[in-house]
């Protein structure tokens, strides 16, 4: 998706485009950038969630076996409970499947998730900065064109007067 749109301005020299076309390219680039930054924040949020899960798994340890806890039935309704199994947790692995894992396994699972997201974040960051460069380039050209236009307008005014 990204490569197709970035390669196009390179095939046609961006400097040859009309101002209106440049404005179009600019809005398109801005939209793409917006979309990418949104994805970036979403990924960040997901990563934070998984990190929180790692911490929570750490809380379920043998020291806490038998301690009373409050189990949320809904957001505002809790019932008292006791932590009977401190060795296992059930992990959501996606598409409606849950797997019972030991604590170290669960921790490893979440760590690999965090890592997976980190890899994605890095590639996304690269794409974003490339897009940003493209956008800056287009903005520069727009600026230069505007200036050239203003200058030629001023020059023609002078020659008339």
């Amino acid at each position: 998706m990204a490569s197709a749109s970035t390669s196009q301005p390179q095939q046609i020299n961006v400097a040859d485009l009309e101002l209106s076309q440049l404005a179009e390219v600019r809005t398109q680039l801005e939209e793409e950038l917006n979309h990418l930054t949104n994805s970036f924040t979403q990924l960040k949020q997901a990563q934070a969630k998984f990190k929180a899960c790692i911490e929570n798994v750490g809380e379920v340890n043998p020291n806490n076996t038998g301690k009373t806890i409050l189990v949320p039935l809904t957001n505002s309704l809790y019932v008292p409970g006791r932590l009977s199994d401190s060795e296992h947790v059930v992990v959501d692995v996606g598409t409606g499947y849950f797997v019972k894992k030991t604590r170290p396994q669960a921790k490893k699972y979440y760590e690999s998730k965090v890592d997976f997201i980190r890899g994605n974040l890095e590639t996304l960051q690269e794409t974003i900065s490339k897009k940003q460069d493209n956008l800056n380039y287009v903005l520069n050209i727009i600026q230069a064109k505007l200036q050239a236009e203003a200058q030629s307008a001023a020059a023609s005014k002078k020659s008339k007067s």
Binding site: G94, G96, Y97, F98, V99, K100, K101
Partner: peptide, 16 residues
């Protein structure tokens, strides 16, 4: 999910 399932040991119970 498939990747996760491939790594499961026999003691891991799966719930749907």
């Amino acid at each position: 999910v498939k990747k996760e399932f491939d790594q499961l040991t026999l003691e891991n119970t799966v719930y749907k």
